[in-house]
Simulated scan of single mutants.
Amino acid sequence: MKKASKTLLLVLASTAASILVGIAVAAYLTVPRIPLIAEGGGLLVFDPEIGGRANPDSHARRIYPAVRDRQTFAFDIYTDDRGARVDGPGRKSPEQVDILVVGDSFSWGYALANEETYARHLARDLDTSVSNFAMAAYGTTQSVQMLRRNADLSPKLIVYGIIAHHLERNVSPCLPSYYPFCFSASHVAWNEAGQPSIARPRSNGVQRFQRHLAGDFLDPVTWFTHGIDVVRGRIEYGLATYGTPTDEKKEEALAYLLREMQRSADQIGAKLLVVYLPTNYYSAPKALPRVIGDIELLDLTEAFQRERDKGVNLYIVGDGHPNRDAHELIAREIAKYVGDKDLLEIRSSSLQPD
């Protein structure tokens, strides 16, 4: 009996040790450190419908050390009480805005101060109010959801900045992240009847990311629970990577989301303008003109290529996001298009942006 008990204890101890070693390897030892220093408050808060959204009334600072051919850079992110990006602390959202911007990091203004983003330039160029609800890593899915969340602002024009990668993001349960685990997010899924809809995120990727970035997992209990969560996130990431839908499904998802965005705009009496923002001067995906329908589309490929041919660089060196010159160009092109198409009737009493 004693021998059996001793054997059982050895088996249990060996199993426990194997589990702990497995967690250590999968959740910590094989997860690389990322070239990012986060200061201030949390940039994102978990949202059970979207996955992550901007932390309202917050200030976060991001510092990116030099890597390869990219220089060190840092920028501050301030948000108002709704989570829209603003110039400084303590800003409140207006009760109504003329233009509402949604999109990803190209529209959010990655690596730039808010004053340098195309949304802020639009506010000045058109002398009107603009709220920017774009966020890094978002796709069309989250852009539709943020539009709906803030429909009570009654914008007259919605500007959606789309990039080619949104086709992949729209159908993936994991948004792009620095870490090899899932940053869980809403995504398009299909039911048994083949009908698309927006599915909720599968887990709390915001907490997973922020805890790992901060190194807030040193006590044994948190080390274990966070480790298990990272393992879960790696499994989700693997399933998302190897379960990528076909190009046809990606196109179908984009078409569905654009229809939903147009429907939401119609419900609040707003016009919708989709702006294609080139990555590395590349042309828009062939799927975009096929599914855009009668939605206004401003393709900035030629404008970007024209500046490139003049010798003007429009991307952050070693990074690929639009730089200050690019955001100024984007704002000029949008403002001209809005004026030419009469998409925005500016009120003389238009609220001034923060």
Rank of each mutant, 00 (worst) to 15 (best):
I228N: 04
W190S: 08
V45M: 04
Q195W: 07
E345Y: 13
Q71D: 14
I235Y: 13
S349F: 04
T79Q: 03
E116N: 11
G227W: 00
V97T: 08
H212F: 14
T279D: 07
S14Q: 09
P180F: 03
S14K: 13
T279H: 08
T7Y: 15
A13T: 15
Y28F: 10
S143Q: 06
R120T: 00
V221N: 11
D152A: 01
V171S: 03
Y337H: 15
A265G: 06
T301D: 07
I23W: 02
E328K: 04
E345V: 15
H327G: 01
R200S: 02
P89S: 06
F304E: 03
G51S: 05
D247N: 04
A60E: 14
H187S: 05
A54L: 12
G22H: 06
T79Y: 01
D76G: 11
D299W: 09
L20P: 02
Q210F: 08
V188Y: 00
A13F: 13
R149Q: 04
T72G: 03
I34S: 12
P180E: 13
G41S: 13
P94W: 00
G40K: 11
D299F: 07
H187L: 04
V159H: 00
V130K: 02
Y138T: 03
D76V: 10
D76A: 07
Y179N: 06
N204P: 10
A265I: 04
K286S: 14
Q210I: 12
V67W: 08
L20V: 15
F181K: 05
D216C: 11
Y337T: 10
S203V: 02
T79S: 06
L44N: 10
A137I: 10
I50C: 01
F209I: 14
A265D: 01
F304R: 02
F209Y: 13
Q352L: 12
R259P: 03
T72A: 11
Q305Y: 05
T79H: 02
P278T: 05
Q267R: 13
R263H: 14
A199G: 06
R332Q: 10
A255E: 15
N323R: 00
N191M: 08
G52M: 12
A303V: 01
Q262H: 09
V31I: 11
W190P: 01
E248Y: 05
L314T: 06
V101R: 00
R61V: 14
A137L: 09
S349P: 00
G103N: 04
D266Y: 13
R169C: 04
A335Q: 01
P173I: 06
L254W: 00
Q195M: 10
G41W: 12
R234E: 07
G22R: 04
S58K: 05
H212K: 12
Y179S: 06
G161V: 05
V45P: 07
F224Y: 04
V21N: 02
D266R: 15
L257G: 05
K271W: 12
K249Y: 13
T279K: 09
V221F: 14
G227L: 03
K3P: 07
T301L: 02
L277K: 05
I37F: 11
A326I: 08
L100K: 00
L344N: 01
V25M: 08
Q305T: 09
T225P: 05
P201D: 01
